[in-house]
């Protein structure tokens, strides 16, 4: 019995000490970690828009985020868009509820500041205030709208789809006509050297400049990547080509399908289909959202 008590106390004590050590390290590093993540996301976004260290983003570039929620009221499902609006000095958010057929249902003012809106718990609290039980809501996705001056410049869509192993997380940039500006792979677990090559410029840059109509019919072809095209795709990485050559190669391959990666057809197809699906779904949703915004005269910020 005495033995048992000794074992129990020493195990509990060591667990406690371990917990305290881990907890304090977590508290010390949490801020830096979150900061890193934020920087990472904003760097990816600005990179897709064509800005980097040597070419900083202009001061009048503004990014607005629209959060999409799925609202369940019994068996009835509706979509809730948390839209940044221009009210007051700092701006706020409005929840616009649209049914599955695309018809406007209701709108609410949300008590949340733009700074707090990036935090999921803050958003949940603000939504709880207007969506009373038995209504339930789940977060679906978010869209970032880049605005320069008073014109929309691009849409940034974070998304995920199944790859060869697990989910591939991407960030897709579209211009106002839904032509692809760029694609970035933010997270993946494909085999390094094979499917892992999806994050290389010579694969992901193939999507650049594909128009909305072209994207819808995009296929994956199993042909070797032409050398000049590869050079063109990698031309952002210091291997500069002549200006005339760039334009010629771009024109030549603009309507081409996606060249599959050697030994990674499944990953190549997964990314292509994922991008296709994201683009078409987003275009459909945005048109509905924009028409509702216009008819309801919502003072949106973007």
């Amino acid at each position: 019995m005495k033995e048992l008590i000794r074992i129990t106390t020493s195990l509990t004590l060591s667990c406690l000490i371990a917990g305290v050590v881990m907890g304090s390290v977590f508290i010390l590093t949490d801020k830096a970690k979150r900061h890193n993540k934020q920087i990472n996301i904003s760097q990816t976004m600005l990179g897709l828009l064509g800005y980097d260290k040597d070419n900083p983003s202009p001061a009048d570039l503004e990014l607005y985020t629209v959060y999409r929620y799925i609202i369940e009221d019994g068996a009835v499902k509706t979509l809730g868009y948390m839209i940044p609006v221009e009210t007051g000095a700092k701006g706020g958010f409005e929840l616009v509820i649209i049914d599955l057929a695309g018809q406007f249902v209701n709108r609410f003012n949300l008590n949340i500041t733009p700074e707090n809106a990036a935090e999921p718990p803050e958003r949940k609290a603000a939504l709880n205030a207007v969506l009373k039980p038995p209504k339930r809501f789940t977060y679906a996705d978010s869209t970032i709208i880049a605005k320069r001056g008073d014109k929309r410049m691009a849409y940034l869509l974070p998304g995920a789809f199944p790859g060869f192993k697990t989910f591939i997380h991407v960030m897709l940039a579209l211009d106002p006509d839904f032509t692809i500006i760029g694609l970035d792979i933010t997270e993946h677990e494909e085999d390094p050297g094979l499917g892992g090559e999806i994050q290389e410029d010579y694969f992901k840059n193939q999507f650049k400049g594909k128009s909305f109509e072209r994207t819808r019919e995009l296929l994956v072809i199993k042909e070797p990547l032409p050398k000049e095209y590869k050079q063109y795709l990698e031309s952002g990485k210091g291997k500069e080509l002549l200006k005339g050559v760039i334009d010629a190669v771009r024109a030549k391959y603009e309507y081409k399908d996606i060249y599959a990666l050697t030994g990674a057809t499944i990953s190549s197809k997964a990314v292509t289909n994922g991008v296709k699906e994201m683009t078409s779904k987003f275009a459909y949703r945005l048109n509905i959202m924009d028409s509702v915004i216009e008819r309801q005269h919502i003072p949106v910020a973007f």
């Binding site: 074992i7 195990l11 060591s14 371990a18 050590v21 881990m22 977590f26 590093t29 830096a32 890193n36």
Partner: peptide, 25 residues
């Protein structure tokens, strides 16, 4: 009698510490 759990706990603690520090810095 509880040396293996203690080892595992010690290793897990240090691994978590390294993991958090790497993620942060």
């Amino acid at each position: 009698r509880i040396r293996i759990p203690t080892y595992t706990l010690t290793i897990a603690t240090w691994v978590t510490v390294i993991d958090l520090i790497l993620a942060a810095y």
